[in-house]
């Protein structure tokens, strides 16, 4: 996101941040060298990946894992490591 920097008199005082969870607008997906690839056919929706993901980047829709939030996933690979069905594999990120 292109960040519009505010001037001192436009910011809330004291350095407080009033918009909870707005780091969602900061994309850490660019850090990745490997990206997780989810195979829905193998996935049993145990959600272990969700519990172990440090970046809240497992996308779940209607109770089913549908993939990863690649805007934020840093590619650590813990999801692949913990997956009991090897439904997630780490692949080299293509530039």
């Amino acid at each position: 996101m292109k960040e519009q920097k505010k001037s001192w008199n436009e910011l809330p005082i004291g350095g407080s941040i009033l918009e909870a969870g707005n780091s969602k607008n900061y994309f850490t997906g660019t850090w990745r060298t490997f990206k997780p690839v989810h195979n829905a056919k193998l996935c049993i929706n145990c959600y272990f990946c969700w519990m172990h993901c440090p970046d809240d980047s497992i996308v779940i829709e209607n109770g089913k894992v549908t993939g990863m939030d690649l805007d934020h996933c840093k590619g650590c690979g813990v999801c692949a490591e913990v997956c009991p069905k090897k439904a997630i594999t780490m692949e080299k990120e293509e530039k």
Binding site: K5, K6, S7, W8, N9, L11, I13, G14, G15, S16, I17, L18, A20
Partner: peptide, 18 residues
Amino acid sequence: VTIGPLDLQDYYFEHKMQ
């Protein structure tokens, strides 16, 4: 609300101005 974040080169000066 988040109070007391890390405030680096981009905004610290503005908060000091306040």
